[in-house]
Design a protein around this nucleic acid. Sequence first.
DNA 1: GCGGGCGTCGGGAACGTTAACAACGTGTGC
DNA 2: GCACACGTTGTTAACGTTCCCGACGCCCGC
Lengths: 335, 335
Amino acid sequence: MKDVARAAGVSHMTVSRVVNGDAGVTKERAVRVEEAIKELGYQRNDLARQLRSKRPRTGTIGLVVDDIANPFYSALARAVEDEAHGRDDLVLVGSTNDDPHREQEVVAAFCARRVDGLIVVPVAGSQGFLATQMALGTKVVCVDRPADGLEVDTVVVDNRTSTESAIRQLLDGGHCRIAYLGDRQDIWTARERYAGYLAALAARGLRPAPAYVKHGVRSAAQAAAAVRELLALSDPPSAIFSGNNLMTIGAVGALGDEGARIALIGFDDFPLAERVSPAVTVVAQDPIGLGASAAALLFSRIDGDRSPARTVVMQTRLVLRGSGEIPGPSLARSA
Amino acid sequence: MKDVARAAGVSHMTVSRVVNGDAGVTKERAVRVEEAIKELGYQRNDLARQLRSKRPRTGTIGLVVDDIANPFYSALARAVEDEAHGRDDLVLVGSTNDDPHREQEVVAAFCARRVDGLIVVPVAGSQGFLATQMALGTKVVCVDRPADGLEVDTVVVDNRTSTESAIRQLLDGGHCRIAYLGDRQDIWTARERYAGYLAALAARGLRPAPAYVKHGVRSAAQAAAAVRELLALSDPPSAIFSGNNLMTIGAVGALGDEGARIALIGFDDFPLAERVSPAVTVVAQDPIGLGASAAALLFSRIDGDRSPARTVVMQTRLVLRGSGEIPGPSLARSA
DNA sequence: GCGGGCGTCGGGAACGTTAACAACGTGTGC
DNA sequence: GCACACGTTGTTAACGTTCCCGACGCCCGC
């Protein structure tokens, strides 16, 4: 900047004003400064800018998700990025693998960079250090799951109710041997979905056979293995609920392998769900909507909104596709 | 920091040393400082740190992709993030939508934040400002596509050859009416894949009917529409090559709608490609490998590697799945 | 006993920018 | 003709940290 000032024969303040498009610089001088900038390839140093700036905004937010490679989270990330781009903000992305330790590392690293805010898919037990960071002024919005016991804006879907109606769909179709595939029970969404599953069964006076319930499924491969176990039972289920997109994909694979004709309902939609065999009925979430809402909430906080913490519950959509819509084992695709 | 120093009864320098784990501070003082830090909730300001620091590393890199919501790029992003996490670096993510203007905005914003380096999926015509940033010291690695005429590390796959062998597979299967679905021709991968398509046909003395070639397909929906157009031709193709994962998904959808039995080969693998009907043979890329290689290359540059620019060409894998492996229209799934 | 090396600590400057204000020249109103 | 406002420009200080160097006390060897 000093070099530019010297080259243009002005003071560094004039350069600063030109760079920031401030009013109050003569046309002639501004042009001279801009020429010098171009010639010297000068570029404003946002680090110093933010350090000195009165309202210390870094124009950067952090997005902390389970796994950015999961299409659900990457769609959400894209929505967040678009909202941020609209106000010239940047997005740091971090994956936690649902590991509290890695989450803490990522959050701490983001905060050391002085992000203006954080959109977090919280892992169990992360309220503590999130609260610490919030006390230091970082705005936080939770998405997909709440942070237990933390007064913070949250965007979620009604996991329990929508799972309940998905299971009810199966029950109405005549299924009563319904298996459950779910993630680790320390994950809120898994607990909610399991609760919905139990509630739907209980409403008909049913309880699941212990062998039908598979917790802690963390990948498509594990889901496939779990499904093969279910199929190997002497009394296999006639329908399976799978707790997220990865599990559903794994389950579809395993069911196909076995040539089994078992109804499948999954949480989360995925491309070509209507084209695989068996076709899969899903509880469709709207990851883009979740991300956009979370970003909007966060930016309003960053812009000074001090109202009490809000919780936004977004709607899901039950998309019927063969599985689960007709009585007995699904035969929809052969009809 | 001043507050911490005062609270601990030491100078700000001692605090700095403790925070950075520097040697040369008495145990007793270090403990006192750490207590003060904990009590006051002090957190190092990396902005100021990086501003003053001699080797100006921000410990942050930028990843610029077409669309982070595309599973190909999100898998790549995850690989980059893992490499970065291993050395305590952070990743800024930006999507360009293959829009040169947005790409320039994103790159400029990243560089203003003084990222140590950039992993870029370059859009056509971006060599200019990338060169500018490189001259200013930002390390750059291109991935998925080269930046035309730019001396820069690059990680790509052999698009042309692998498309050629995919098409040859169809030709060997007896297909000669093979349609092509491809992205905008200003995108390098699209040009390469198209060249491979033409080369494979030319090797048999064939040329595609103009109606069989669809350029500029940018989404699954557009691919589906293109496929429907192809099917509506008086002389429809017996096989279709689709130029990326999104197009393949769209094509599968459209083919299913029409109940058509047309061989489909796609570039990029996708989940459940073996389960959809028709099953899809694919040229599988390894997005994780691409991302990891690009990140490794970038970090070696950041760490001072000044050797000439390298180009890494990664292998693809032709995954045969029904479509294209038997003569005539694919009947694999009904076998 | 005393000089010098070493380990520990602090003071001041500097990084590149913006905030605050002062200085300057010009035009305007009385 | 003079005070005053206003628009433009420059000067100085500050943001929070690290770098550089000097100061201080201590121990050791002569």
